[in-house]
Design a protein around this nucleic acid. Structure first.
Length: 282
DNA sequence: AAAGCACCCTGTACGC
DNA sequence: TGCGTACAGGGTGCTT
């Protein structure tokens, strides 16, 4: 469930506590978490390195190191990056542990990668572009303008919801925020991308950016299952502000009709058939 | 280009 | 109680 707001929240926490610190050791509990290089090389190449920068690209956590290497981490479904003191007992789903040098303010001397479902992945590379260059634009960047969004959508005929989940098209949205954004923009999830009117594209552009910004402001969304955690272990509060995701059968906050739930591309899709008509003039 | 499906995983919910 | 199954959704990769 980590989508852009959750990854951004984690990155902000790590940036504050990790930048400038040295990785004194690495332990890999489950080698499947490491895409490349092999786990032995991964440990050897990270030991002794200092973190120079922590950033985000799409749903990737980007950790730059003092020797030009970059550690890329994707949390996928259940990945968590937790800054904890060594005394804090290690959770049963801890897959990779980074031991950090002493730090003046906090006792957090471990960065633990917990990942119940083992979907998360790490890549240590000299060439992060090889992984990141496939990604679409950042929805919160200044260069993601309405005009650009219009051009992007005009040449696509797929379902708008599936397209917005495609990270090569646009990064950051996952199944939670895509449902929210489409409801806010009053656009049916099955609409063909190139069928959106200028006014609708403007509304969608605004909805995507506002829902992502609002969720970042609340530290992301932690669902009932508690899968997402900030780097300090706290939950995100945006779950209280979700308007359609997970609200099947409940009255639409706009018109009162029950929120419907259907499958689109194997994913649960929540929408209001009255507020989100299948055609622009519906 | 787009859609569908299997797969990667594990915990939870549910029907019988 | 317990077993089998569906479901959750971040992706990739293959086929149609």
């Amino acid at each position: 469930m980590p989508e852009l707001p959750e990854v951004e929240t984690v990155v902000r926490g790590l940036r504050r506590s990790l930048t400038g610190r040295r990785i004194t050791g690495v332990r890999v509990n489950w080698s499947g978490s490491i895409t490349r290089p092999d786990p032995q090389s991964f440990v050897r190449r990270l030991r002794g390195r200092r973190v120079t920068r922590v950033d985000r690209r799409g749903k990737w956590v980007v950790i730059e190191l003092d020797d030009g290497q970059t550690l890329l981490i994707h949390l996928r479904m259940t990945g968590q990056l937790l800054l904890e003191p060594a005394e804090c007992p290690e959770g049963k789903y801890t897959r990779v542990v980074f031991q950090l040098n002493d730090h003046r303010e906090s006792g957090t001397d471990r960065l633990r990668f917990s990942d119940m479902r083992k979907f998360g992945r790490m890549v240590l590379t000299d060439d992060p572009a090889s992984v990141l260059e496939e990604l679409g634009p950042e929805p919160l960047d200044d260069d993601f303008t309405v005009e650009r969004f219009k051009r992007m959508l005009a040449e696509r005929r797929g379902r708008i919801k599936s397209l917005l989940l495609n990270q090569r098209f646009l990064v950051g949205l996952g199944n939670i925020y895509v449902n929210e954004a489409l409801w806010l923009a009053r656009i049916h999830p099955l609409r063909s991308a190139d069928s959106l009117s200028g006014v609708e594209v403007e509304a969608l552009h605004r909805a995507i950016r506002s829902v992502l910004r609002a969720a970042i402001g609340q530290g992301g969304t932690t669902l009932e299952n508690g899968n997402f955690r900030q780097a300090n272990g706290e939950a995100g509060e945006f779950v209280d502000e979700l308007l359609v995701y997970g609200h099947e059968g409940e009255p639409c906050g706009c018109c009162g009709e029950p929120i419907e739930r259907v499958k689109v591309g194997q994913r649960s899709t929540y929408f209001c058939s009255r507020c989100q008509p299948t055609s622009a003039d519906g």
